[in-house]
């Protein structure tokens, strides 16, 4: 699967073909180049995006393969690279390295029911999984997707989520942590665990849970799911760390001396993540 490039530190170029505002702090960038179209990747993997002269940033892949190129969603965290990316325009050039990391083992999940838990921008890597499953719908059982953000204005890809809500073969639940009186809504209000607490299917062992969000949320989501009969090895999470090389050399993403998030992850089971001290920090 991994084709060794001659020099793994050198990116290939891609052109920004479209920019979409996702919410007040996030944009999605459509990228395209002949090399990019050859790129084969799987849900859960990430790429390194280079802004030449500014820096490089690791970004989870937000989409499944399509012919016109490729889409990444990026939140402006105020850092060198993401803030510069948000000033870039259609036609500008960026560099890409990847795909990197281990994906979600979607083939192993065949025949299972799937629960997707998307906390905040953790939705973006999971979005690739959801689209993959919809494209291969007959391979999987029941589907439930749970989305949680801080307030209603922070939802991204709203049209897409709403199109999933209208599907008969899939259930979608949304929640916001809190909302002020003016812009509140008629769906659930409360932490994401308020939805997972109520998730009590008859045969929990038939389910696989794919979860992405801030690591601190994994602890609470894990607890909530454990109570309802799910064990840690059914729960798959995607971890985040500072990354530089992305190829297991620079040691930035090493978790307590034993696992590289870039090479051994970013996808781990919650059990694996708990076994690494500090893994969920």
């Amino acid at each position: 699967m991994r084709k060794p490039r001659e020099n793994p530190y050198i990116p290939f170029d891609a052109t920004i073909t479209k920019i979409v505002d996702l919410n007040e702090e996030s944009k999605s960038f459509h990228l395209d180049s002949s090399e990019l179209r050859k790129m084969i990747y799987q849900p859960g993997q990430f790429i390194q995006v280079t802004v030449y002269g500014v820096g490089e940033v690791a970004i989870g892949i937000t989409d499944t393969i399509y012919d016109e190129g490729f889409e990444v969603a990026i939140r402006n965290t105020g850092g060198r690279v993401t803030s510069y990316l948000h000033t870039m325009k259609v036609g500008d050039i960026v560099g890409i390295r990847g795909p990197l990391g281990k994906p979600f083992p979607m083939d192993d999940f065949k025949g299972k029911n799937l629960l997707f838990i998307c906390a905040g921008i953790g939705f973006w890597p999971i979005r690739a999984c959801i689209k993959h499953v919809i494209n291969h719908r007959e391979d999987y059982g029941k589907l439930l997707a749970i989305f949680g953000v801080r307030n209603p204005s922070l939802f991204t890809y709203t049209d897409e989520i709403e199109s999933w809500m209208s599907r008969e073969d899939m259930k979608v639940q949304r929640t916001v942590d809190s909302c002020s009186d003016e812009d509140c809504w008629d769906e659930n209000v409360g932490l994401i665990t308020s939805l997972t607490d109520d998730f009590k299917p008859q045969n929990p062992e038939d389910w696989i849970i794919l979860c992405c969000g801030p690591p601190v949320a994994f602890k609470f989501i894990g607890e909530s799911l454990n109570k309802n009969g799910f064990n840690d090895d059914q729960i798959w999470v995607s971890l985040e760390r500072k990354m530089k090389c992305g190829i297991g050399k620079c040691n930035h993403c090493l978790i307590h001396g034993t696992r590289y998030v870039c090479m051994d992850g970013p996808v781990f089971t919650l059990g694996e993540a708990r076994d690494m001290p500090g893994g969920l920090d």
Partner: peptide, 10 residues
């Protein structure tokens, strides 16, 4: 120890 950091400059 082979840790390294990477930066882009102009």
């Amino acid at each position: 120890c082979w840790c390294f950091d990477v930066k882009e400059i102009v």
